[in-house]
C-alpha cells in the first residue's frame, strides 16, 4: 500500500494570501505577518499554476518541457516547493483543509 503524499491533490493560495507578478517575479504577501517573499523563476512558474484545479503531475508535465527536465525531476521539485509553501501557510489543498 502506498501512503498518500502530503502534496498530492490540487493546491491554491490560502485565503487572504496576496500575490502578484511584478517585474517578472512572483511576489507573495502574508498579510497576517507582513511576511513578503519574492519567488525565483522556477518557484514563480510553479506558483502561477497552483490554481486549485491543476495537480502536481499536470504541472510537472507542463514545466518539464519548458525547463528541459524529466517529469520525475519536475514532480520532485514541485512537491518540495508545495511542501515548503504549505508549511509556511501560503498554500492549501483545494478542499480547503490546511495541511
Amino acid at each position: 500500500m502506498t501512503l498518500p503524499d502530503r502534496t498530492d491533490g490540487c493546491f491554491e493560495p490560502a485565503p487572504g494570501i496576496a500575490w502578484r507578478e511584478i517585474g517578472g517575479r512572483v511576489v507573495v504577501l502574508q498579510p497576517l505577518t507582513d511576511q513578503l517573499m519574492t519567488l525565483n523563476a522556477t518557484g514563480g512558474a510553479i506558483w502561477k499554476r497552483l490554481d486549485g484545479a491543476t495537480d502536481a503531475a499536470a504541472i510537472a508535465r507542463d514545466l518539464a518541457a519548458a525547463y528541459r527536465v524529466t517529469p520525475d525531476e519536475a514532480i520532485s521539485d514541485i512537491r518540495t516547493f508545495v511542501d515548503d509553501m504549505v508549511s509556511r501557510g501560503l498554500l492549501v489543498r483545494r478542499d480547503g483543509e490546511p495541511e
Binding site: 485565503p15 487572504g16 494570501i17
Partner: peptide, 28 residues
C-alpha cells in the same frame, strides 16, 4: 488576491459578518 485592510468604525451590525470575512481571508 489583494491584501485587504478595512478601515472601519466596527458597526455593531457587522460583528456577525466577521466570521465570513475571516474565512474569505480578511487579515486586518
Amino acid at each position: 488576491r489583494f491584501a485587504v485592510t478595512v478601515k472601519t468604525s466596527g458597526p455593531a451590525r457587522c460583528i456577525e459578518r466577521l466570521t465570513d470575512w475571516r474565512a474569505w481571508g480578511l487579515a486586518r
